[in-house]
């Protein structure tokens, strides 16, 4: 694991909610990827079954914040301002992954997009577009 991925893992481990959800950090040639292993508690619809929309939102938001911290070397966690989540496919009872990219870095705010997928990155289950406020 690279130093960047280790630093991210340490950051996420310091956040009780991320630790509790079981979010892990991976890295590939394109950058950081967050992994959320499947767990029964993540289910929102027991009939399908499908992941809860809040779980999907939480992983996407965490990926967005982690990417900003990683790329901009933030000392403090940025504050979320707004987040818009599009639910594209139902999240199945499988491991999920998320990757984020910064679209525009302003002096105070950052526009960030994130995508979440399960078995195939070209078939995303949800995407996020949001703004975060940098703290200094």
């Amino acid at each position: 694991m690279s130093a960047a991925a280790m630093a991210q893992e340490a950051l996420l481990n310091s956040i009780p909610y991320c630790r509790w959800m079981g979010i892990k950090v991976l890295q590939d040639g394109e950058g950081l990827v967050l992994e959320l292993p499947f767990d029964q508690k993540l289910i929102g619809n027991t009939i399908l079954p499908a992941l809860h929309g809040g779980v999907i939102g939480a992983l996407l938001e965490t990926a967005a914040l982690a990417q900003v911290v990683h790329e901009l070397d933030c000392v403090e966690l940025p504050k979320p301002v707004d987040m818009a989540i599009d639910y594209l496919r139902s999240g199945r009872a499988l491991a999920s992954y998320a990757r984020a990219r910064i679209v525009k870095r302003g002096r105070r705010t950052v526009n960030v997009h994130a995508q979440m997928w399960q078995e195939d990155e070209t078939r995303p289950i949800a995407s996020l577009r949001g703004h975060v406020l940098l703290r200094r």
Partner: peptide, 13 residues
């Protein structure tokens, strides 16, 4: 402060 994802879960539900 509570994680934004908790608020997302509450509002979605």
């Amino acid at each position: 402060v509570i994680h934004g994802g908790v608020i997302t879960s509450l509002l979605d539900q």
